[in-house]
């Protein structure tokens, strides 16, 4: 399952964002941020204590089951009195959750986390970015490993000169995507795919901001599909 990977903003930045706001309601989420220990019940409680110690009045808190879900509006209704007393909502979810909450409540929302990437759990407590949703997929020619995402420079024609012992020039903790792709294609006896000169990528596969609409959406409405 893909997950939204987050990390808490530096305390200094949070203090600045909350400056002048004395009554705060806190929102967490039971899904991705619970898994990454950045916005589950434990972290929400810790934040509550921390802000109280800094002189804030915490009007209440809630850990939504899935903050980015359409049900978030109804879930927040249950806490409407406590939310009503707050000047701002501190949202300890990924940016999808923050934006969902913002659409439901006429209050300033403050993200407590930075959303780093959409990632996959690749080991206990380890998450890796595997797809940047670029809109022009080329992994059919790279053994199923995405160089646009996994190579720091997004190179599509092989490694740069900074690769060293299978690691990336920016971080020995990051694998060189092209070493992985080479090993995979060699194993599959498909190195010819790597030898093909790839044309410059189409960076406008879906021009930002992405918008998708199923053609003839009307025919897919519930009444039409019955």
């Amino acid at each position: 399952m893909i997950r939204s990977i987050t990390q808490q903003k530096p305390q200094e930045e949070l203090d600045q964002l909350l400056n002048g706001l004395s009554r705060v309601f806190i929102v967490g989420c039971g899904t991705c941020v619970t898994l990454t220990c950045t916005g589950g019940r434990t972290e929400v409680d810790a934040m509550q204590r921390l802000l109280a110690a800094r002189g804030k009045l915490i009007t209440g808190s809630i850990v939504l089951p899935v903050a980015c879900d359409n049900m978030t509006g109804e879930a927040l209704q249950a806490s409407r009195l406590m939310i009503g007393q707050a000047e701002a909502i501190l949202v300890m979810t990924c940016a999808f959750g923050v934006q969902t909450v913002a659409r439901q409540i006429k209050k300033i929302v403050i993200p407590a986390l930075d959303t780093l990437f959409i990632g996959k759990e690749t080991g206990p407590g380890q998450y890796d970015e595997v797809c940047t949703q670029c809109g022009s997929c080329i992994i059919g020619e790279t053994g199923g490993i995405c160089p646009v995402t996994s190579c720091h420079k997004g190179l599509v024609n092989g490694p740069c000169g900074g690769t060293n012992n299978g690691k990336c020039e920016i971080d020995q903790g990051k694998d060189c995507a092209w070493t992985m792709i080479y090993n995979r294609l060699k194993e599959l006896n498909k190195l010819d795919a790597m030898r093909r000169l790839q044309r410059p990528r189409n960076h406008q596969g879906e021009p930002m901001p992405g918008k998708f609409r199923i053609k003839e959406a009307a025919s897919l409405s519930p009444s039409a599909t019955v």
């Binding site: 490694p159 060293n164 012992n165 092209w178 790597m194 030898r195």
Partner: peptide
């Protein structure tokens, strides 16, 4: 470079 083969490609 190590590994050398991807560099040579």
């Amino acid at each position: 470079a190590n590994p050398i083969e991807p560099q040579l490609i």
